[in-house]
Design a protein around this nucleic acid. Structure first.
Length: 278
DNA sequence: CTGTGGTCCTGTATGC
DNA sequence: TGCATACAGGACCACA
């Protein structure tokens, strides 16, 4: 569920608490989130303990915290990952996976129910973890070459929905905002990229930016420094979604029933009248 | 190279 | 009531 706006809320929360803190001790309650750590639990713990943390950064849905101005703690929230900052004496939330004792007496906790999330220690990764070099810039990055992105989308025979979710083309967009952007742009999710005009692709990207900007504004208001909630349930979804999760409900624009179709082991939601196949 | 579809996870909802 | 199944889905990887 966490897509770019939710991850940005988390990044900002971590940036408000962690800079300058030193990791005293790392506790791994469940090793699954470390599946991308080549040297396992030992490598993860050894890399982090004693390190001074910097300001959290983000690319798409990945975020990382510089360690000792040289390395990085890299993370992805997956479906259900959360970071919390608690006192060590506070009871552990269900599904707490990793603990970081900090030098101010607080404890950073990684909680993840479904364990699609990941954490790992990246040597030399402070500036940009090499494991993320294949992840494209996101729509909020001023360095993103939008003209090149439009051209790449238009050169592909894949469906536009799949292209929007391809983090190697543009990062940060997940299933929810892809559906919302396509609804706003009145584009059928199954349209091949090559069948879209440059203007239409531009509109899709603009709408994706807009819907994520609105979500970010909402998420920011519910943020609490001590409870970095990441599952996006800040109220934005239920109030502001036009297509996602609204199968059978009227399209807010034309009143036709929103349709849900299977899409690579998940779903696409769209309005059959506003978003015609072309 | 491009494009597609399976897999990992667990909690909740639904169906028989 | 109880068990089985569907569903949620981001990233990655195998394969055509």
């Amino acid at each position: 569920m966490p897509e770019l706006p939710e991850v940005e809320v988390v990044r900002s929360g971590l940036a408000g608490h962690l800079p300058g803190r030193i990791v005293r001790r790392v506790g791994v309650l469940h090793p699954r989130p470390l599946r991308r750590q080549p040297d396992g639990v030992e490598g993860f713990v050894a890399g982090l303990e004693g390190g001074r943390l910097g300001e959290a950064r983000r690319r798409g849905k990945f975020l990382w915290v510089p360690v000792a101005d040289r390395d990085a703690l890299v993370g992805h929230l997956g479906m259900s990952g959360q970071f919390r900052v608690d006192q060590p004496s506070a009871p552990l939330a269900a599904n707490t996976r990793i603990l970081f004792d900090l030098d101010d007496g607080s404890q950073l906790r990684f909680v993840d129910q479904r364990m699609f999330g990941a954490l790992w220690f990246s040597p030399g990764g402070a500036e940009l973890p090499p494991e993320l070099s294949h992840v494209a810039l996101d729509l909020f990055d001023s360095s993103l070459d939008k003209a090149a992105l439009v051209a790449r989308i238009r050169s592909s025979g894949s469906e536009i929905k799949r292209l929007l979710l391809n983090q190697q083309l543009v990062s940060g967009i997940g299933n929810i905002y892809a559906d919302e952007a396509l609804w706003a742009a009145r584009v059928h999710p199954g349209t091949p990229g090559a069948r879209l005009s440059a203007r239409t692709v531009g509109i899709v990207l603009e709408q994706a930016t807009e819907v994520m900007t609105a979500a970010l504004a909402q998420g920011g208001t519910s943020f609490d420094a001590l409870y970095v909630n990441v599952n996006g349930s800040s109220g934005y979804f239920s109030r502001a979604l036009n297509a996602y999760g609204r199968e059978g409900l009227p399209c807010p624009r034309c009143g036709d029933a929103i349709r849900r179709v299977a899409f690579t082991n998940r779903s696409s939601h769209y309005c059959p009248r506003c978003q015609r196949r072309r």
